[in-house]
Simulated assay, not measured.
Amino acid sequence: MKELTAKEVENLLKEKQPVNIVDVREVDEVRAGKIPGAYHIPLGLLEFRMHELDKSKEYIMVCRSGGRSGRASQFLEGQGYKVINMTGGMLSWEGDME
């Protein structure tokens, strides 16, 4: 599984790189703030909503600490998606939030 640190993801955003971020935290967690532009699909619904993702794109998976996003990454990789896990999750995030 490919991984990036929160700082590396923040740098991609600052450099205006095209990134697709999927936040797999629960609704109440996301309500407290998320990475600008991140798409929200709670981990428990990922299996039912993965059709909303495009297999031709690469996705950076995000959660609170990196565990759930790691599971999401493994699941989606098994389904043929290109994914990267953001290690450390939002606990490590120092960038802007919305």
Rank of each mutant, 00 (worst) to 15 (best):
Lys14Gln: 10
Glu52Ala: 03
Ser69Cys: 15
Leu45Ser: 10
Ala72Leu: 00
Glu3Thr: 13
Ser56Pro: 09
Thr5Ile: 11
Gln79Arg: 10
Val30Thr: 14
Asn20Gln: 06
Ala32Thr: 10
Lys7Arg: 13
Glu77Ala: 11
Arg71Phe: 13
Gly67Ser: 10
Lys7Glu: 15
Leu76Lys: 03
Leu12Arg: 12
Arg31Gly: 03
Met50Asn: 12
Lys57Gly: 05
Arg68Phe: 15
Ala72Gly: 01
Trp93Leu: 00
Ala38Arg: 03
Ser65Asp: 04
Leu4Lys: 13
Lys82Glu: 07
Ile35Pro: 12
Gly66Cys: 08
Leu45Gln: 12
Thr5Asn: 10
Asp96Tyr: 04
Lys7Tyr: 14
Ile84Trp: 05
Lys7Ser: 09
Gly66Phe: 03
Asp54Arg: 06
Leu4Thr: 15
Arg49Ser: 11
Val22Glu: 06
Glu77Asn: 14
Gln74Trp: 12
Lys55Phe: 04
Gly44Met: 01
Glu29Arg: 00
Tyr81Asn: 02
Gly33Pro: 02
Gly89Thr: 06
His51Ala: 06
Val83Glu: 06
Lys57Thr: 09
Glu47Tyr: 08
Leu45Met: 13
Arg31Val: 02
Glu77Met: 11
Tyr59Phe: 11
Arg25Glu: 02
Val24Trp: 01
Ile60Val: 09
Leu43Lys: 11
Gly95His: 05
Thr87Pro: 04
Asp96Phe: 01
Thr5His: 11
Thr5Gly: 09
Asp23Ile: 01
Asp96Met: 01
Val62Phe: 14
Glu98Phe: 08
Asp28Leu: 09
Leu43Val: 14
Met61Gln: 09
Thr87Cys: 08
Gly37Leu: 06
Tyr81Met: 09
Lys16Phe: 10
Ala32Gly: 01
Val24Thr: 06
Ala32Pro: 02
Ser92Gly: 05
Ala72Glu: 02
Glu15Lys: 09
Asn85Phe: 06
Pro18His: 15
Lys55Gly: 08
Leu91Glu: 00
Lys7Thr: 11
Met86Phe: 03
Gly95Ile: 06
Pro42Arg: 01
Asp23Val: 02
Gly33Glu: 08
Arg71Trp: 11
Leu43Tyr: 15
Ser92His: 07
Asp28Pro: 00
Glu58Val: 09
Gly70Phe: 09
Arg31Phe: 00
Gly80Arg: 07
Lys57Glu: 10
Asp96Gln: 12
Ser92Pro: 07
Lys57Phe: 08
His40Cys: 12
Glu26Ile: 05
Ala6Pro: 15
Ser56Asp: 11
Gln17Leu: 04
Gly78His: 11
Ser65Pro: 05
Ala6Thr: 15
Met86Glu: 08
Arg64Trp: 03
Glu15Phe: 01
Gly44His: 07
Ile21Asn: 01
Ser65Ile: 13
His40Ala: 14
Leu53Met: 03
Lys16Val: 09
Val19Arg: 01
Gly37His: 06
Glu77Val: 10
Arg25Leu: 03
Phe48Val: 07
Glu58Thr: 13
Val22Ser: 02
Arg31Cys: 01
Gly33Gln: 10
His51Asn: 04
Arg49Phe: 05
Asn11Val: 11
Asp54Ser: 08
Pro36Tyr: 00
Gly67Met: 10
Gly95Thr: 02
Pro42Cys: 12
Gly37Phe: 03
Lys34Asn: 11
Glu26Phe: 02
Val22Trp: 04
Leu91Asn: 07
His40Gly: 04
Lys55Ala: 06
Cys63Lys: 03
Ala38Trp: 02
Asn11Cys: 05
Tyr39Phe: 13
Gln17His: 15
